[in-house]
Amino acid sequence: MFGSDHPGSQPDYWKQGDSSTTLIRTKKGVVVSLRVDIQSARPHNMVHYGLQGTEGAYLGPRFDGEDPLIWLRNEGSYTSGNDPKWDSLWHHKTKWDHPDWRAWEKEALHTGHGGGDFFIIREFVSAILEDRKPAIDVYDAVTWSSVFALSLQSVSNCGSPVEFVDFYGKN
């Protein structure tokens, strides 16, 4: 693209792999494992997420037609032998669906990212029209975006921990 003289045309210029795993330890001692894979040759999947805590877990679908799965400690997600089991998220739809999703599902499903784009844009426009702070502000956005740069910094320092920048200036 830039020609054979550009540094990016050299084989050793690009050091990243197909995927990256970042470990984040919060101030409260919670460890977050974040895996990003946007380069590998496998099929792309925008909704395959996992979230795990001590009282429950979520596992997004791996392919079209597969249900998202949940395990909830206090919601009967056990076999008769008291072994934990995954349950379809859709079995809990009436209890856990957000009121906004109930109201806007048909419209949202015609937008990107499984309907998520609809709600992000709706929130942004509502915040402007109502002259209020948005649910996700510029400080949240820059903090979330900084994970990439901080990960690169950590990798270049042999995996050493890197402090998050406090963009709010509260510390």
Rank of each mutant, 00 (worst) to 15 (best):
D97L: 08
P43E: 15
Y13C: 13
S77F: 00
K85F: 00
H6D: 15
T94F: 07
I24P: 02
Q39Y: 13
V125D: 01
S33G: 10
R102K: 06
D83T: 01
H6S: 14
G169Q: 01
P43C: 10
T79K: 06
W101D: 01
I120L: 14
G76A: 01
E55Q: 11
S80D: 12
Y13T: 11
G116E: 06
W144P: 04
L129F: 06
V147K: 05
W86I: 01
G56P: 01
V142F: 02
H113V: 06
V155K: 03
E123D: 08
S154T: 01
F124K: 06
P84A: 06
C158P: 00
R62T: 08
W71Q: 09
M1H: 06
S77C: 13
R62A: 07
T26Y: 15
D5Q: 14
P43Q: 14
K27I: 11
N74E: 12
W14V: 13
M46A: 12
V147M: 02
S40W: 09
Y49K: 08
D5V: 09
F124V: 10
A141Y: 00
W14T: 15
A149P: 00
L109R: 14
I136R: 04
S9M: 04
F167W: 07
H113Q: 09
A149K: 12
E105A: 06
E163Y: 06
R132V: 02
G8P: 02
S77R: 00
N45K: 07
L59N: 14
H6V: 06
E66A: 14
R25D: 08
Y58L: 00
Y78K: 04
N171Y: 02
D18Y: 08
H98I: 05
F2M: 15
D131L: 09
F63Y: 14
Q10S: 13
P68I: 05
S156F: 02
K27M: 11
L59Q: 13
W96Q: 12
L59S: 13
K133H: 11
I136G: 00
D100H: 03
I121V: 11
I120Y: 01
K170S: 11
I128D: 08
V125E: 05
A103C: 03
R35Q: 14
L59K: 10
N45W: 06
P11C: 15
F63S: 12
K27N: 14
N171D: 07
V47Q: 13
D140M: 02
S88I: 03
G112R: 09
